[in-house]
């Protein structure tokens, strides 16, 4: 993620902690203990404190993940539009992994997520930075094929 938007220094340094964690995660794919320690050092915090803050937020990962993280929305509107479990089941069958798992080739991680704020064009899912809406099984096949899937 581009950090050029910090036109001015933040009034307190710790405000930058969430951003620093994102940057470390981007670099290594997940938050390694070394990265946590480096950040703690830079912010004058104990590693435990940094860790405690990071674990509050679902977007930080303490474990490695696949190249593509698929997040299927399991919200009510997606369910009503035929998504949620239906999409999740389809992906489980296709990738042979359960939510929370990564394919053996390290390509895909499957996850569930709460409402993605795309309920008007549900079912929805996100893969890394990209939001996919109005999903059908055909569309999912196409999307995964393009990403280098089966």
């Amino acid at each position: 993620m581009d950090v050029g938007y910090f036109v001015k220094e933040d009034p307190v340094q710790r405000s930058m902690l969430l951003t620093a964690l994102f940057m470390a995660q981007e670099q290594h794919g997940h938050l390694t203990p070394e990265a946590i320690e480096r950040i703690a050092d830079r912010f004058g915090m104990r590693p435990g404190e940094v860790y405690e803050t990071a674990t509050f937020y679902s977007m930080y990962r303490e474990e490695p993940v696949g190249r593509y993280v698929i997040q299927v929305c399991e919200g009510l509107s997606c369910h009503l539009a035929g998504g949620a479990e239906a999409i999740l089941d389809y992906l489980q069958g296709k990738l042979h992994i359960a939510p929370g798992e990564t394919t053996p080739d390290g390509l895909f991680t499957l996850r569930t997520v709460q409402c993605l704020a795309a309920c008007g064009s549900s079912p929805a899912m996100r893969i890394n930075d990209t939001l996919y809406t109005d999903l059908t099984t055909d569309r999912i096949d196409m999307i995964l094929d393009q990403l280098g899937g089966e």
Binding site: M1, Y5, F6, V7, K8, D10, S15, L18, T19, L21, F22, F56, Y57, S58, M59, Y60, Q114
Partner: peptide, 12 residues
Amino acid sequence: LDMTVHRGAGAY
């Protein structure tokens, strides 16, 4: 006025 963007990290 200065304005900056802060990203949340997944917590409703």
